[in-house]
């Protein structure tokens, strides 16, 4: 089975949940649809939703909550 990638369109800090006390937008193993929010990018103190550009099952995140991301960097893979 081939894997599809979700890449960050933005540079900044990546968050997997809307606020520190919330649940993750998606957990490893979830399935995703196109336009599902998979995380937030904090760019210069402003927050932007990162939406999936692909659909598929069994999402696997490659970036931890609070890590730095660069444009084009793969955030997660789906099957």
């Amino acid at each position: 089975m081939s894997k599809k990638q979700i890449m960050s369109p933005l540079p900044g800090t990546f968050y997997r949940k809307p606020s520190p006390d919330s649940e993750n937008f998606k957990n490893d193993g979830d399935s995703v649809e196109i336009d599902d929010v998979v995380g937030l990018a904090e760019v210069m103190k402003s927050f932007h939703e990162i939406k999936s550009t692909v659909s598929g099952g069994k999402i696997q995140f490659l970036i931890e909550d609070g890590d730095a991301i660069m444009p084009g960097q793969v955030i997660a893979e789906v099957e």
Binding site: L10, G12, T13, M44, K45, A68
Partner: peptide, 12 residues
């Protein structure tokens, strides 16, 4: 300065 890379992590 010319060549400076503005990082994404701080105030704009």
């Amino acid at each position: 300065f010319e060549g400076y890379e503005v990082p994404p992590f701080y105030d704009s």
